[in-house]
Design a protein around this nucleic acid. Sequence first.
DNA 1: AGCTATTGTGTAAGCGCTTACATTTTTATA
DNA 2: TATAAAAATGTAAGCGCTTACACAATAGCT
Lengths: 337, 337
Amino acid sequence: MNIYDISKKAGVSIATVSRVMNGNARVSEKTRQKILDIMAENDYTPNAFARGLGLNTMQTIGLLCADSSDQFFSRAIYYLERALRANHYDAILSCTGAGYDTRMEYLKRLLAKKVDAVILIGSSFIEAVPERNRYIVDAAAEVPVIILNGYLKAPNVYCSLCDDREITQQVTSACLEHGRKELLFLYRADSYSGRRKLEGFKGAFAAAELPLDPRRIILFNGSIPETKEKLLSVAADGLIFDTVIAGDDELAIGALKYAKAMQFDIPSQFSIIGYNNSQFCICCEPELSSVDNQLEFCCNNAVAALMSVLSGKPAPGKTMLSANILERGTTDFFKFL
Amino acid sequence: MNIYDISKKAGVSIATVSRVMNGNARVSEKTRQKILDIMAENDYTPNAFARGLGLNTMQTIGLLCADSSDQFFSRAIYYLERALRANHYDAILSCTGAGYDTRMEYLKRLLAKKVDAVILIGSSFIEAVPERNRYIVDAAAEVPVIILNGYLKAPNVYCSLCDDREITQQVTSACLEHGRKELLFLYRADSYSGRRKLEGFKGAFAAAELPLDPRRIILFNGSIPETKEKLLSVAADGLIFDTVIAGDDELAIGALKYAKAMQFDIPSQFSIIGYNNSQFCICCEPELSSVDNQLEFCCNNAVAALMSVLSGKPAPGKTMLSANILERGTTDFFKFL
DNA sequence: AGCTATTGTGTAAGCGCTTACATTTTTATA
DNA sequence: TATAAAAATGTAAGCGCTTACACAATAGCT
């Protein structure tokens, strides 16, 4: 069943059938209804490939993330997919894993599929060395590129993120003001958000005119038990710390396991805060305080910007949300904020 | 840059260019290399839509799941996407939410995109009433349908799942043999795996010739705190229970919160086992025992079957794996199994 | 009624590829 | 070296849609 069959049954030309499908040209109400009826009767679905070829779009958006099984990414995927669908777009998902080359390769593959745009999920796509982000700029020459939770200033690149620097400085300052000066900043990878969080952490020390021992900044990429071991060894090395600001909830839970192993009372003797407000938070005991980075808003903003761009309207290159602190059982001094 | 441009530069016809792209017809080594070089020089990518129209495939598979942010689904998506990609297929992802109509609608939408096959992730797609699975059978008339973690006997439908009935009967029997007769079976929704688990639970009682109070079977669909409350109210109603077999890890954690609220010693006074071996398990304290349903194998099997079908070879309509029990801190009697 | 705008519909030329079939070139064989 | 078989390449007709342009029908004027 194709457009010719429909046109024959309706006694019109294929052009008229096409017109009612696309709804952009005028067709008399009578013939429109007739064609619609015949389509429905025959359960006609236009051939998506032919349509794609004619219109040069199949209404699909490429989603690129490191790992769809990650809590943060999987939620982002959910929100993005939902928002895209509401705008009649479908999502092609691609998980790159950790490698840089893989990221480039999969991005190319997505472009080869002729997606209308690409959304890069996660700040790990943005590297500190500008040259290494070149492939993103190149991709943006072909289709709009949306970056979720990262920032890159380039033409046709639109970023939606939360202000990790600001919230981290707030968190850190609150710790310092509450007398918690033996801080540890634990972060997972050299990502855009990681760097911003670190800036905030350092910024709070600078604002308080306090010295900052570099050993208090730990770049560590491990599982929950590995994080616990790591902190045990850091403590064994003689560094004293009673509060951990962890770049994500899993690192935070590692710290929680450490604190429990040391039999510290939480939060009075030892405090912990994570990021992302993942489902993990309420599994722990005490439940984990976490920075809520407004992921749903972030995703909706990203898609809104994308839709604007795709319809030829302008969109801001950067949309920044401010994060919230969700205080649960592993801290007790944010309520004053 | 299209196939004409390449053919002109190479001084051959577009047919020859097409032949080297598709690699199925003979082309002399000399011209093949020349064309390949010219393609590389010019960074040529064939137009995916035109290709799709000509070949009637764009090498994409539709993935349908209720919620990509769910731990189980998001891992399945990761494994499936990876396996598909390895076979040069891309994944279009669609999250349906809970509704039945939405499932039908999104499945149709996927077919309209001309995917080569559809993978239904999660047993909630399979309903107890055969008539309600009709839309899946219909879809299978168009493209192969793969069901992950569910079973439906129909032409062109291929299922990859683990034996939830068997493992649940084992788990339940182990409880009973260990003297834990005050069992509670908690499950979330009327899904295929839920029904199979329930069969296993009942089967163990039947095998042990023990009576089963229907109040011990609880169909409950709530969050972790809601589950805790639910169990508190069940206990308040006078039902005695010291062991919970929970259909997934979140329900299990709800039960864990209940047990802690009651200040039971775990696992000596109160035992809990979940399903899915999610990342939640090791966040808890004690860490949660869980049934490992071999998701990665399941996904790989599913994709293997699909690839077989797509290449015209036969594939088994059902591939069933046996699950493992991962005993952690919330039980202590599976080590004997 | 006669003329012009407006609206509705058809014709045909793409979109960029694949591939059956025809044709030419090369290779193998006697 | 003539000839048949095999290999390489070209020609042209699709695949199923969109849309610019042409033309016909209708409506709105005086």
